[in-house]
């Protein structure tokens, strides 16, 4: 698998660290809604097909990326920075 890091270019899977589902939303910092916390920490859609997920380019620029990938075929559709400002920062 090759991931096209927007900062470093296409790099091998071995350089990246998988950081899981990117569709979860963390409750507000101060939230005391245990159900919301449980959902955030433990529950995943785990789709068979298109999956939005985080990868960190750990062996490269270290930016976290949002990757859209098919979990059935491993085909990668899109790659972008997780943090919109990362491009500037990392450069």
């Amino acid at each position: 698998m090759l991931i096209d890091c927007p900062h470093c270019g296409p790099r091998d899977l071995a350089e990246f660290s998988y950081q899981g589902d990117a569709t979860r939303t963390r409750p507000d910092l101060a939230s005391t809604d245990t159900k919301a916390w449980l959902d955030y920490v433990y529950h995943r859609p785990n789709p068979a097909g298109r999956h939005r997920e985080f990868w960190q380019h750990a062996g490269g620029c270290r930016a976290h990326l949002v990757v859209e990938r098919d979990t059935l075929t491993h085909e990668i559709f899109t790659v972008s920075f997780a943090r919109k400002t990362s491009g500037g920062d990392a450069a």
């Binding site: 899977l13 998988y18 997920e53 990868w55 979990t71 059935l72 075929t73 491993h74």
Partner: peptide
């Protein structure tokens, strides 16, 4: 990484 393919890398 999440996968439903019975093949790895």
């Amino acid at each position: 990484y999440n996968s439903y393919a019975q093949r790895g890398n």
